[in-house]
Amino acid sequence: MTRQKIQIKKIDNTAARQVTFSKRRRGLFKKALELSTLCDAEIALLVFSNTGKLFEYSSTSTRQVIQRRDLHSERIDRLDPIPSLELQLQSSTCAMLSKEMAEKTREVRQLRGEQLQGLDLEELKELEKLLEGGLNRVKQTKEESFFKEINTLKRKGVELMEENQKLKENMENLGKQGQQSEPNGHAWRSSSSDISLRLGLPYPN
């Protein structure tokens, strides 16, 4: 016969509730004793019945366990501010970075001629020096790039002139070779004409 599972809810019958409390309390204390013995755990149990009667179990001393629990809570409370301090440092770092970013953004806009309101004469002079220095560096870089491009074009021009000179020399050599072969061709044609005339039929007398 299988054991019937009891539904976990408040027992309405007072006598049955007292019997169940007594049995389960002893079972709970037995389990606590086994846990303490097997695992070398320090355990304290405090149980009040519905009539207000106190039942307790402790592997050592209930007071000692409670004091240990209080010390542990105090240690946790002392450690709690540390994460808060870390969060404060992170927040301070984020605020500093945000401020620095805002200043750099303002400087860039001022270099572009924006947000100049509120600057005094000295600040405007300093900004003008920065702009002049940047403009000079831009001009210098542009000139270097310009001269580099000119040198590249000159080099390409020289290469093209050399290539044209080679083509011109090749054309002249071809012309000379054609002039040298032309007289031989005429002589061959003249000789062949004479031969054809001599081989013709003689005219009658």
Rank of each mutant, 00 (worst) to 15 (best):
A16F: 01
Q18M: 02
Q18F: 01
V19W: 00
T20E: 03
T20H: 01
T20D: 02
T20A: 04
T20P: 00
F21Q: 00
F21Y: 03
F21D: 00
S22P: 03
S22V: 13
R24W: 06
R25Q: 14
R26A: 15
R26Y: 08
R26F: 10
R26S: 12
G27A: 15
L28I: 15
L28W: 11
F29D: 01
K30N: 13
K30I: 03
K30F: 12
K30R: 14
A32D: 07
L33W: 11
L33D: 14
E34Q: 13
E34L: 10
E34P: 04
E34K: 10
E34A: 06
L35E: 05
L35S: 10
S36N: 05
T37A: 14
C39K: 10
C39S: 10
C39E: 07
E42S: 09
E42I: 04
I43S: 00
I43Q: 01
A44V: 11
L45G: 02
V47H: 03
S49Q: 07
T51H: 04
G52D: 09
K53I: 11
L54S: 11
L54Y: 02
F55A: 10
F55N: 04
E56L: 09
Y57G: 01
S58W: 02
S58T: 05
S59F: 05
T60I: 07
S61H: 06
T62R: 02
T62P: 00
R63D: 02
R63E: 02
V65S: 02
V65N: 04
V65L: 01
V65C: 01
Q67T: 09
